[in-house]
Design a protein around this nucleic acid. Structure first.
Lengths: 226, 226
DNA sequence: AACCAGTGTTAACGTGTGTTAACCGATTAG
DNA sequence: CTAATCGGTTAACACACGTTAACACTGGTT
């Protein structure tokens, strides 16, 4: 599965690391830079989808950096992290287009909310949600599974989601309880039975290619190998 | 020059007055209400362009109020003012669409930035109600659906509205009950059957391009993908 | 008034999806 | 070896949704 890549420019190492880790637990891919120049380089080489920029930074401050990047890409969402001392006028001038800002100190929840907010607005159909599974093509948004050039199989919503999570964690174990909570809302006996049924269904639908297998790891969960 | 009208719902008189005056110096027209019910009334009679709602209010809290108003208008920007105690989950659930939130205490600059931010966004989005759907062109005001250069298909009022909401939420799930309340006024058995019929009609009319599909999400609603 | 076309609702019936149950085999602890 | 547990499979089931057609209502036309 495609992780959204976020460029984080923050010169204070401790804070940068905390934010980075917090975002990573939320399943973002985070590129941490400790000054504006590095951030610009990283932006150009790694093409992140969203920027979180500290305003006060050595080498190149957040606003100047944003200006430079805006000259190349005027759509990418930018979130500024500002200290109290920053004058409001400057901030305001930048809060147009895909921009937002957060005043330090802020909670991680606030940052995550703003990130998701901005991402939702600029979200376009992600080609990366069409996944290749050996000889199968799995289009998650369309809930379609196609073996080679055969007639595509329409998956149900549940099937698609379950498969999606399996693929996301392919070749590593996906915990039962995790998926039960995510798709069914709670890990109880009945939901677990229901999930078994869906595993069976997916196995059948994936049976045309025997290099793909959904393996059970007793007591832990499932592992999709391919 | 046209002043933007903002509805401010805040039960604490002192704070409400401060916010009102600050916004007025920024050339906004402010309608101050000290509870949710009054705010709903004011909304209906005065048609403000943006809402600033305190979450904790007597009579009708900010979230409930927002839900009610969203049923009528799903585009109007809403900013919630939340106390620290508010759980982040609830807040997050509301920070979609035209919503944002501010945690108390906040500075006036912060509020003004967010207001301008949301106003700018909705302005851009509002420009065109002629929507492109893969190979189809959908002119919502004219209720016309055209596939490539073929003869345009005239949609009925209901069809156009239903499609409009699907398109607006494309690639994400549009809740059944939401649309039932918005288009039919209430979510009951018969309206639900009626809606099914319209989904069928739309599917037929959109069938020329099979990259467009209206997928059902059992128990939740529909997802238009394209 | 009688007719008609267009629109939306209701009804009847059919299909699809997810849950539950029943039964079974496999694995592991005692 | 035996019992307990976990997972696999199939089928039955309930109910959400799909489809078609008949019906009712509206407003316009003759």
């Amino acid at each position: 599965m495609h992780k959204t890549t976020i460029l984080l420019a923050e010169d204070e190492p401790a804070l940068g690391q905390i934010i980075k880790e917090s975002l990573e637990t939320r399943d973002f891919n985070v590129l941490l830079c400790d000054n504006g120049e590095k951030a610009l380089e990283t932006y150009q080489t790694k093409s992140p989808e969203l920027l979180v920029l500290d305003v006060m930074m050595p080498k190149k401050d957040g606003f100047t950096l944003a200006k430079d990047i805006r000259a190349i890409d005027d759509a990418i969402p930018i979130i500024f992290l500002t200290a109290k001392s920053q004058t409001q006028d400057v901030v305001e001038g930048f809060t147009i287009g895909g921009n937002d800002y957060l005043k330090k100190p802020f909670s991680m929840e606030e940052l995550i909310v703003r990130i998701n907010n901005l991402l939702n607005r600029t979200k376009v159909q992600k080609t990366s949600e069409i996944l290749q599974l050996s000889e199968y093509t799995f289009d998650f948004p369309k809930q379609i599974l196609q073996f080679q050039k055969e007639e595509p199989i329409q998956l149900t919503h549940r099937e698609a989601h379950l498969l999606f999570h399996l693929v996301k964690n392919k070749n590593s174990v996906l915990e039962r309880s995790l998926i039960l909570i995510k798709l069914w809302g709670s890990d109880d006996f009945f939901n677990a039975r229901s999930m078994d049924v869906f595993i069976t269904k997916l196995r059948k639908k994936l049976s045309k290619d025997n290099s793909i297998q959904i393996l059970n790891v007793r007591g832990f969960g499932y592992k999709l190998i391919c």
